[in-house]
Nucleic acid binder design. Structure first.
Lengths: 402, 402
DNA sequence: TGAGTTTGTTTATCGGAGGCACAAAGCAAG
DNA sequence: CTTGCTTTGTGCCTCCGATAAACAAACTCA
């Protein structure tokens, strides 16, 4: 005679999709979970109970928890306040930063930004991991994994940084191995993942920011030097066969333009980054503040009334539009988001860029593609956390219960 | 009391993947099916029996059917000889063609190619559908669906041909609706699907030709005028959000090049198609034979010993290499296949193109990307059939039993 | 001929999800 | 306040696809 098993362990195959719905804010109540997953109420109930027992979400069954229409109010689903977190780390040309990020892209704690960057990747990554370890110790949260964002293409499956150009790191540095070594040295027993910062920013924006709901999201951004791109298709990063896709910096946008270190001229990289804008505006880069900040100040403070800035920004916008148009023809995205200086330029003159993209991409349809700036702060950090959360989102039971 | 159900109806969820393995030639025996699907022998047996009962495959259990190693020989799996077929149709600038294609990309019957092309899409599509209907009547095969390849981007979800430039069709012609109307008028009760010819060729090459096993397959081809591209990721066509991806013809490959109707100069479209090669070689296009045939004859007959042809082909190869390098940087494919004149040029000088692509794509890694010509005859036709077979591959029971 | 190896088949069982009936919790109209 | 309607949550049973394990079959090799 079989003893009556508890039915609470049901719903394993839909557990991941269910958690993803809560994670991305698309499942505020249990009833929504039912319809979004396409399962019965019984299954959705078991799934919600299971996620609650894993300590990931809370199911609020109190009356009045949901502002209802007709019928019995549904139980409210929320991300557990004291649930586990991911350790997120970011290294860039001007410093590094660590944070703890919970489900839903919620930044739980941040370490103060550090501006010193050593030339040795192991040293920098060790520093940022130790900063993260301190946060974990202070908060006492469980850590589900760790993610590191670097300003370089990261090759798969090796996890090496191929072009960390503005970091003075050696090309091909095994950043994932270094990251995992540092995690182990800091006593953090969790898997470490690495990714390109623009890729991770795009992932974060897709799940929690300006890219929500887009099926084919193109993200282009410039930080300090150079331009990065990313594509999120059906909720997953499109990184190509070896993690090297969306290296968009060397599209030709001005045949008579500046020479580029790649050997060509007028590449997107050298025509639309902060230095290009400063030079075009006749403004010498100063010693204080990053190139990005100086370029941003120029645009937000003196566009459009300063003729030199107006002309320079207009030129950069036109060049960027040409590059985006080429990408639109190749990738056919349904939304474009712009980060860094590109986002600032878009905000300063929302119409000009769209017009250029529409004129130079085929069948004019592209004019219908919404182009918006990124909206998340620290989106690369949140994206790094997404990398760490991914195994949990794919299979919560396997990732947490072990 | 429950009656003892026959266990032959098991294995529904793995039925599609199993058929796909047989379809792509990756499951010659039942034992391979077991390991490839990752299921038990019991399940694989039930699945094979089910596919056989659907009339799609044969399971040959005769001793000696498999050249074995040790142990009991496995049953041989083969595509059923008299199984159902897909109606494949292709329309291009020089005419149209119909064929019947079975599983495995096997061309079962072809109608003679027709060289007359009317300006009215309904007329042409009606002609090709009637040719296909005759083939169905002659062979008496069951038809699982129909696919049509057109030399134009096909917008989804509407199924309209956006730029059928060399067909004198109106832009935006609702080819899928027309195709389905013609099918119904011909008494063929099957769903009709439409796609871009290069996309479909890439799909066919991925499943049955030079692209087998590639995870990220890039295909670039030129037929008569213009250049088309396609990307197959994890076995599925990447068509972007609206079916318009991989419009690669307007990448800039020569800033001082020929003017293009898109308003720019030196586009891949006008620098690497057959007309570009003929002009560069100082050869006036003649009245007899298509542009593609004339350009091919030039290369195969007079390369490399004719200096003019050598120089012209070299220039076109270099331009093509620049375009491919840009695509490599953006898409990071693990294999590239070239069709039409591009395939001929590659075959004529296999090393030069690879060197250019390697030099102009980042981190030199791209030099490792294999570049090969397409190998299938009628690959757009076979690809059109793939479109029609897809619902069967996704869920054989639902598609066939209804 | 017999041992070892690999594959096919049979039977019992497991586990996730659906179906259905019923209970619970709100709103609206009288 | 009561009654009816609507919507949601829960318990019980069933279904279905697949696994597990034991056995039978077919071949190679010594």
């Amino acid at each position: 005679m079989t003893h009556p098993r508890t039915r609470l362990e049901r719903g394993r195959n839909v557990l991941g999709p269910a958690l993803e719905l809560v994670h991305t804010g698309r499942a505020p109540t249990r009833a929504v979970l039912t319809t979004e997953l396409g399962v019965t109420r019984a299954t959705a109930g078991a799934v919600a109970a299971e996620l609650q027992s894993l300590g990931l979400i809370t199911v609020d069954a109190r009356p009045g928890a949901v502002a209802g229409g007709q019928g019995r109010p549904s139980h409210r689903l929320a991300i557990a306040d004291e649930g586990p977190v991911a350790l997120a780390a970011q290294v860039h040309a001007d410093g590094f930063r660590a944070a703890l990020v919970g489900l839903g892209g919620r930044i739980v704690a941040t370490a103060p930004a550090c501006v010193a960057v050593a030339a040795d990747p192991a040293e920098v990554i060790g520093d940022v991991v130790r900063a993260g370890a301190r946060l974990l110790a202070e908060t006492g949260r469980r850590c589900v994994g760790a993610g590191l964002a670097v300003p370089s293409a990261v090759a798969e499956p090796d996890g090496t940084a191929l072009n960390p150009l503005h970091l003075d790191w050696p090309a091909g540095a095994p950043v994932r191995d270094i990251f995992n070594d540092c995690l182990a040295a800091a006593g953090i027993h969790a898997a470490g993942h690495c990714g390109n910062d623009v890729n991770l920013a795009a992932l974060a924006e897709h799940r929690h920011g300006a890219g929500r709901g887009a099926d084919h999201l193109l993200c282009v951004a410039t930080g300090h030097r150079g331009v990065g791109g990313a594509l999120v298709v059906d909720g997953r990063l499109h990184t190509g066969s070896a993690g090297l896709a969306l290296e968009v910096g060397h599209l030709t946008v001005d045949p008579q333009g500046r020479p580029c270190h790649c050997g060509s001229r007028g590449c997107l990289d050298v025509e639309t980054d902060p230095l290009a804008l400063l030079e075009a505006a006749g403004s010498r880069p100063g010693p204080q503040g990053s190139l990005l900040d100086q370029a941003r100040d120029l645009v937000t403070g003196r566009y459009p009334h300063d003729p030199a800035v107006r002309a320079a920004a207009g030129t950069v916008i036109d060049r960027l539009g040409l590059g985006l148009a080429a990408l639109v023809n190749i990738l056919n995205p349904d939304r474009i988001i712009l980060g860094g200086l590109h986002g600032t330029l878009l905000a300063a003159d929302p119409d000009r860029l769209g017009a250029v993209v529409g004129d130079h991409s085929l069948w004019g349809r592209s004019g219908d593609i919404p182009i918006t700036p990124c909206v998340l702060g620290h989106n690369s950090l949140v994206g790094a956390a997404e990398l760490a959360w991914q195994p949990v989102l794919d299979d919560p039971l396997a990732a947490l219960a072990g």
